[in-house]
Nucleic acid binder design. Structure first.
Length: 887
RNA sequence: GCCGCGGUGGCGGAACUGGUAUACGCGAAAGACUUAAAAUCUUUUGGGCUUAUGUCCGUGUGGGUUCGAGUCCCACCCGCGGCACCA
């Protein structure tokens, strides 16, 4: 019978499902293993090749863990809120709920066809009200603990569609759908205080096992930078302090942030962001207000992309006011320029053109003074150490005129810096910060690149934000004294007057049924159109109030799905069911795409930490959700080009499953190349692993035949069997180790080598072949199950697969290898002359140096190379190599 | 500009701690089986010179360290991914 994957794969998938052998059980007797993969977004395009790559890899690991005796949780679900579905709904006027249901059905069929050992009893979907009930609950906790606030933020606004766009929908400064210009528009948004957790999100990375590049990305994204905030006094043109109130918090001081406080003596002007409040607050003092207004409006017109190129540095001096450099006491001009942004630091900088490239470019353009206050240390040191060296003179030439061509941004020794002269950068920083603090002009400050998280979308297909706005409560709140407020209200209500949390018993707040999913012309969520839904009684005072109509972003559901799996029961969740959570959390191994290693990973870590802080996640689970995080490389189209619908090079795994079977697709995706790297899909190479499986099949059948005809014993005898046994042990070792390191490609290659050998063997013991099937089974579960049951069918009734006698290959213990059996007794000694391989000699393991030398030197080839020459040196590596250095 | 990853046959790739470069697979060529094709099996497959022996060259480029470098060091080139006027 030839290998027929279609027949056997369907059969086994049905049996596995019926017997429920992959259902996770909280078995206290066993160690647990929680393997997690990123759940898919059920798009209309179906599964793509990237999904099986990650899912097969984790499936292999989970299957191996089960065989090693762990109780394993390997769940799957659907991240089913999202823009593509909503956009499709707008176009076709179908409720996204219906489309999502259809897509999930397609994904489920596809995933099941690949034979993953998921616990399907725990499947979840983020758009299911039973699920988003708890997504909303989590939001309410954030609100109550003062981590959610409403504030005006700039959003992307398509001038043609008249709707707000997500960042992903803005491509090159234009709307992804219509190609029109996208501008920034201010809107009130719910924002989460993720920055409060910034330090912990960096520090706790020390205690988790993430790939280094993932850790780096997280750290860079948070972008912590230590520096100082410094207050510069602002005076009007008569050199008078603007107001006589000398409170440094007042507007007569301009606060800047810098990481190089040590260069303060070189600060020859200040620059503020175009939207800095100083402009509005000091309007009466500014002589060229009109010019500045014009500049600001010009900037808004310029495409943000062009500004970002950083080629042009433009700005306008604010006439009528001056700043005082607190170190030099000199009056310096203040500029407004678009190279300083309000989003970072204080929206104002002290410009040190001598030591900052941007300030330098700006100073050159507007003819501003450039002071050199730091001398490179290397220069000084190497001059002392080696005054005549060539590299040094080159360095000197470079540095003698560095002020004329560019700014020196490195560390060094302070010069022209008053009391900082002669200090090295780090010391100078300490000293100046101490000095600033003493004079109440500044202090050490930490800034983050990470911004607070805008958590609302003016969309339909997302979780409704469970808050109600009550105008009466707002008034009441404003008239209430601070102390009373504090005792009567939660932090969220104090922070956001008038906003009231939906009572927990009313959750979930389900999405209302509407017909038109386009956002309103004012940019409000389409939910605003559901008037009956919006109108609601205030849960606090019973007055007329309205619901929040914004929904949560697509990240909301994926923030806690790994917790949801652990507490899922019949598609219901109870977050207070901490017993199950305690058993499974944290996730032991999480694999996913590199594209999610910044946002999703950071967001979900933040939410987890918050839940941990408020006790929703028990202490025992620890402060981090994922113990280990790895990432797979992207699968590219043929020829190494990114797959995309527009290029028409998208590979549908379904086609390959149909043609070759799931085992072949699984094995190919593991074999195609290094797991963590981007790899092009090569349709014609798939045949290679398919051939391999066919040969496994044929061999399995012949082993069975032989067993039947001869009642073949499984004793291993003779040299051939000895070699086979060694190879088997080697293979068990290599495959096991490679799986742990996610080097699946070399694991498969080792199994191919093994097959190539056992095919040649005249006398293959069934026992050897069975072990091979077991280690192959996590990769190709269907074919190995079929063959395994076939071989065992003499002992067991083949028709008893569904009864209690049935023992799946996936329940067999992972084979052990014997290190002693791997060791060979002979090896090829590599003989080199002057580092070049000249001969190989079979030698017994453990041969002594003198013996090896004698053997090597008696070889005719080596004699040819060493004749008439003097052997200067002999390098000997035990059981490996001997090298003669000759002259 | 910054951070990260990578560059090895016709192609995907392998190579432990510096010790036989090109494992495994694809493709290609030749042969076997077949009326024929497909499938399968066997052999060959980095380049040059040479009759096979053999020998020289060869892991992006140029240097270096070493008995010995794909692997380590220095300088550079190219490709990919992410961030980007971060003060």
């Amino acid at each position: 019978m030839p290998y027929d994957p279609e027949k056997i794969e369907k059969k086994w998938q049905a049996i596995w499902e019926k017997t429920g052998i992959f259902h996770a059980k909280e078995n206290k007797e066993k160690k647990k293993f929680y393997g997690l993969v990123e759940f898919p977004y059920p798009s209309g395009d179906g599964l793509h090749t990237g999904h099986p790559r990650s899912y097969t890899a984790m499936d292999i690991i989970c299957r191996k863990r089960r065989m090693e005796g762990y109780s394993v949780l390997y769940p799957i679900g659907f991240d089913s809120f999202g823009l593509p579905t909503e956009n499709y709904a707008i176009k076709r006027k179908v409720n996204p709920k219906i489309i999502t249901k259809e897509n999930i059905a397609i994904f489920t069929r596809q995933l099941k066809s690949l034979g993953f050992s998921f616990d399907w009893s725990r499947v979840l979907s983020t758009s299911d009200p039973e699920y988003y009930k708890w997504t909303q609950w989590i939001f309410l906790q954030l609100f109550k603990h003062g981590l959610a606030y409403k504030a005006k933020e700039n959003i992307n606004w398509c001038t043609s569609c008249k709707i707000g766009l997500a960042n992903e929908e803005v491509v090159g400064g234009v709307c992804e759908r219509c190609g029109s210009e996208v501008i920034k528009k201010e809107r009130e948004q719910w924002i989460l205080k993720i920055t409060k957790y910034a330090d912990r999100l960096i520090d706790d990375l020390k205690n988790v096992d993430y790939l280094d590049r993932i850790k780096n990305q997280q750290i860079n994204w948070i972008g912590r930078s230590e520096g100082a905030s410094i207050k510069f006094e602002i005076r009007n043109q008569k050199s008078e302090t603007i107001s006589n109130n000398l409170n440094p918090n007042d507007q007569n001081y301009l606060e800047v942030f810098t990481t190089r406080a040590d260069t303060i003596f070189g600060a020859t002007f200040l620059v503020i962001a175009p939207d800095h409040s100083l402009i509005v607050n000091s309007e009466s003092l500014i002589e060229n207000y009109e010019e500045i207004e014009k500049y600001i409006s010009d900037i808004k017109k310029a495409s943000p992309r062009l500004v970002n190129l950083g080629l042009k540095k433009t700005g306008v001096e604010i006439k009528g006011i001056k700043a005082i450099n607190p170190a030099t006491k000199k009056e310096i001009p203040v500029f407004i320029a678009d190279y300083v942004s309000m989003d970072y630091g204080t929206g104002a900088i002290m410009a040190v053109p001598g030591h900052d490239t941007r300030d330098y470019a700006f100073a050159k353009r507007y003819n501003l003074p450039i002071e050199i206050v730091v001398k490179p240390t290397d220069d000084l040191k190497s001059e002392i150490r080696n005054p005549k060296s060539e590299t040094n003179s080159k360095f000197k030439i470079q540095n003698s005129n560095f002020a004329e061509s560019e700014a020196y941004e490195g560390d060094g020794i302070n010069i022209n810096s008053g009391f900082l002269n002669g200090l090295e950068t780090k010391e100078a920083q300490k000293k100046i910060i101490a000095w600033l603090k003493e004079n109440k002009l500044g202090d050490k400050t930490i800034n983050y690149h990470l911004r607070d998280w805008i958590f609302s979308r003016q969309r339909y297909w997302g979780e409704p934000i469970p808050l109600i706005f009550c105008p009466k409560c707002k008034k009441l709140m404003e008239n209430t004294k601070y102390e009373i407020r504090n005792t009567k209200h939660n932090e969220g209500e104090i922070l956001n007057p008038g906003w009231v949390a939906v009572p927990e018993k009313d959750l979930p707040i389900e999405l209302p049924e509407i017909k038109d999913f386009i956002p309103t012309k004012d940019g409000d969520s389409p939910l605003a159109k559901a008037k009956d839904w919006v109108k609601v009684k205030c849960p606090k005072c019973g007055c007329e109030a309205r619901r929040e109509t914004d929904v949560m972003p697509n990240w909301a559901g994926s923030n806690w799905y790994y917790i949801a799996y652990t507490i899922s029961e019949n598609s219901k969740f109870e977050i207070r069911n901490t017993k199950q959570m305690k058993y499974w959390t944290p996730v032991d191994w999480y694999n996913g795409g590199m594209e999610h290693t910044t946002l999703h990973l950071l967001y979900s870590r933040f939410i987890y930490k918050f839940l941990y802080d408020i006790g929703a996640v028990p202490r025992e689970c620890g402060p981090e959700p994922y113990k280990k995080r790895t990432a797979h490389g992207m699968i590219l189209g043929e020829g190494g080009i990114k797959m995309s619908k527009s290029k028409g090079n998208v590979i549908n795994p379904d086609d390959y499953v149909k043609e070759y079977g799931a085992d072949t697709v699984r094995l190919y995706e593991m074999f195609m190349g290094p797991f963590d790297q981007a790899i092009p899909w090569e349709g014609k190479s798939v045949i290679g692993v398919n051939r391999f499986l066919s040969r496994v099949w044929d061999l399995g059948e012949s082993v069975k035949l032989k067993a039947k005809s001869e009642k073949h014993g499984s004793k291993i005898q003779g040299q051939e069997s000895k070699d086979l046994e060694r190879l088997l042990n080697q293979t068990i070792k290599k495959v096991g180790e490679d799986i742990e390191q996610m080097k699946f490609n070399t694991a498969v290659s080792q199994m191919m080598i093994f097959l190539n050998e056992i095919e040649k063997a005249k006398d293959l013991a069934q026992e050897v072949f069975e072990k091979f099937l077991i280690i192959l089974s996590p990769f190709a579960p269907h074919i190995t199950e079929e063959l395994y049951q076939l071989l065992k069918s003499e002992i067991r009734n083949p028709k008893s697969e569904t009864n209690s006698n049935f023992r799946s290959i996936s329940e067999e213990p992972w084979p052990k290898y014997d290190e002693k059996l791997i060791k060979k007794d002979v090896f090829s000694l590599v003989v080199q002359v002057n580092g070049k391989v000249r001969e190989m000699i079979e030698c017994p393991i453990g041969i002594s140096e003198s013996e090896a030398k004698e053997k090597a030197l008696s070889s005719s080839k080596i004699i040819g190379w060493t004749r008439d020459k003097e052997i200067v040196k002999v390098i000997y590596v035990q059981d490996k190599l001997i090298n003669f250095v000759v002259k």
